[in-house]
């Protein structure tokens, strides 16, 4: 008898989540990182965070398919992985790159277009979501408030995309430079958000009633 996909997927789901880090470690071990390894680490853990966050957002729309319902809990797992990558990403930036030199960091942050701030807000959101992720905490919070809070994941994703778009070299709005990655992820995130909006619209009562009325007045085929 074939095993339920949810069972074997457990390996795949975690495997996917560990891949960016494993790959990075392997390349570092083999000495294949660039002459600017700190940048490799910062960029690739940032990308890891964004990819996992995107995957987490994809879990729910995928689970709408009757045969993929089991994938829904992965939104939490992948979301937590995204948080872990984001923490590593920020640690590398603050601790390794800047060596905790707050004066330099402060200069860096103050002189910026706000891309660091978008990253920071995204990180704060992910932190809040991770903190309220244990079931006990979620229960204490109450379903309504928990749901409202966790809707912020959309905002975090959009901010992270924007943060990445401004961090890469090039101009996203002019579609110039090294921008295909943030643009691609941005399109996927946009599609995932749109899917939810469309579905809500489709399920909306008024909409349903409107459709019913239309079909009621026309003669049955």
């Amino acid at each position: 008898m074939a095993r339920h996909p949810a069972r074997w997927f457990r390996w795949l789901g975690h495997g996917i989540a560990w891949t960016p880090l494993a790959w990075l470690l392997l390349e570092a071990y083999l000495g294949r990182l660039s002459p600017n390894p700190i940048q490799d680490w910062t960029q690739r853990t940032g990308r890891g965070a964004l990819y996992l966050l995107t995957l987490s957002l994809a879990a729910t729309p995928l689970s709408w398919h009757p045969r993929l319902r089991w994938i829904r809990p992965w939104r939490r797992t992948w979301g937590l992985y995204a948080f872990a990558y984001a923490v590593l990403h920020v640690y590398l930036f603050v601790g390794v790159d800047y060596g905790w030199r707050w004066d330099w960091l402060w200069q860096e942050i103050l002189s910026q277009k706000p891309y660091i701030w978008w990253g920071l807000v995204a990180l704060l959101i992910l932190t809040a979501l991770a903190a309220t992720s244990p079931k006990a905490v979620a229960r204490r919070l109450g379903a309504r408030r928990w749901k409202a809070l966790h809707r912020l994941v959309y905002l975090a994703a959009v901010l992270a995309v924007w943060h990445a778009a401004q961090a890469v070299k090039g101009n996203v709005l002019a579609l110039r430079g090294d921008i295909y990655r943030p643009v691609a992820v941005g399109l996927v995130v946009g599609a995932l958000l749109l899917a939810r909006v469309v579905r809500r619209g489709l399920r909306h009562r008024a909409f349903v009633r409107f459709v019913k009325k239309r079909f009621a007045t026309s003669p049955p085929p």
Binding site: P35, N36, I38, Q39, V96, D97, Y98, G99, R101, W104, Q107, E108, L110, S111, Q112, K113, Y115, Q166, A167
Partner: peptide, 15 residues
């Protein structure tokens, strides 16, 4: 988009 106050000298760690 970024400060120019510090730099990474390639081959060194940190800034």
């Amino acid at each position: 988009r970024w400060s120019q106050a510090t730099e990474r000298r390639l081959g060194e760690s940190g800034r």
